[in-house]
């Protein structure tokens, strides 16, 4: 493999992994608080269409990202009202949210199909972007790529170093105990769910404004589901989410390169296209078989409704 090909594949891998990282880390926060929101696909789709529409009309991609974030957060708020205030079942509500979001985004996005946005130029970080092989791939990237790294480090600090993160983990493990020592469980869960929705919205915005600057129905293409699976298979640990997302991106890009390279291989392209999905799952399942680690990291009360007794 020549150096140029390596650099461009690494570049593409990072780009493909970025929306997954942003969405999965957002979901990780809401799941650490004990709320299972299966509606990621719908929140991403709404974020994507909102970001596209606002960018198209305003010409400013950052207003678009803000709109995507707002749309994702609004969807999550809806989910929060259903499951945290009205105590609806989280699994059923999440599935409904996914279907609702995908459908509504297709409806809203109808007038925007077949319009292309102007590509947003990457941001080049001086000096380190000159490192051979990896510099161009890692440090001449879209702003949201840098954002995903900041989010990762910020989340590591928040979850394991800050008091607020400690409270969040406590709420996810035992809401009754957290309530008994005086924490507002429902409010904390709302914040965590809305954060998760906002990140899903940004992930969607990345797809429609930066990754493929266009809108089409089905643009999200199951990435919301992959992000959900990533969080579980990563046993709720941010570093493994990062690894899993880039693994997915890497396999995705590799199979695209193979399909696009014109190599005559005797292998159905459909199977090749499915490779990233199952490769990610197989690898993550293989590395997450330690029962002790799962017990220590998984939020014990995930998906269980909690009603403080007044």
């Amino acid at each position: 493999m020549d150096a140029g090909l390596f650099t461009s594949m690494l570049f593409s891998t990072v780009v493909a992994g970025t929306p997954l990282i942003i969405v999965a880390l957002g979901l990780l926060v809401s799941e650490k608080a004990g709320v299972l929101n299966l509606g990621a696909e719908g929140m991403m789709a709404m974020g994507a269409v909102a970001a596209f529409a606002v960018t198209h009309h305003s010409g400013n991609p950052w207003l678009g990202v803000a709109a995507g974030m707002g749309a994702g957060a609004a969807m999550a708020l809806l989910f929060g009202v259903l499951t945290l205030t009205l105590m609806a079942n989280q699994v059923a509500s999440g599935l409904a949210l996914a279907i609702f979001g995908v459908g509504l985004s297709a409806f809203i996005g109808k007038p925007y199909e077949a319009i292309a946005l102007q590509a947003v130029p990457p941001i080049r970080i001086p000096f380190i972007a000159d490192i051979p092989l990896i510099g161009e791939a890692l440090y001449n990237q879209q702003a949201l790529v840098y954002f995903s790294w900041a989010l990762f480090w910020g989340l590591l600090w928040f979850l394991y170093r800050s008091r607020a993160g400690l409270v969040l983990r406590a709420v996810g493990e035992s809401p009754a105990s957290a309530h008994a020592i005086g924490y507002p469980v429902i409010r904390i869960r709302y914040l965590a769910v809305i954060f998760g929705g906002a990140m899903a919205g940004i992930g969607g915005a990345f797809l429609s404004v930066f990754y493929t600057p266009m809108w089409a129905e089905g643009l999200v293409a199951g990435r919301g589901w992959i992000a959900l699976a990533l969080v579980v298979f990563a046993t709720w640990r941010p570093l493994r989410v990062l690894v899993g997302a880039y693994l997915f991106g890497g396999v995705m890009i590799t199979q695209l390169f193979i399909q696009g390279s014109g190599l005559q291989i005797d292998f159905p392209s459909q199977l090749l296209s499915s490779l990233p999905y199952w490769a990610t799952i197989v690898v993550l399942v293989a590395i997450s078989r330690n029962a002790n680690a799962i017990r220590l990291n998984s939020p014990v009360s995930l998906g269980k409704p909690y009603r403080p007794d007044a």
């Binding site: 008091r163 400690l166 409270v167 983990r169 406590a170 493990e173 035992s174 009754a176 105990s177 957290a178 008994a180 020592i181 005086g182 924490y183 017990r295 220590l296 990291n297 014990v300």
Partner: peptide
Amino acid sequence: VFQHFSLFETLTVVENVALALPGA
């Protein structure tokens, strides 16, 4: 001190204590 403990199993002793104290 509760009859059924209000401790968080996956956290350490000092983290559990910190959760119940004011400030950080």
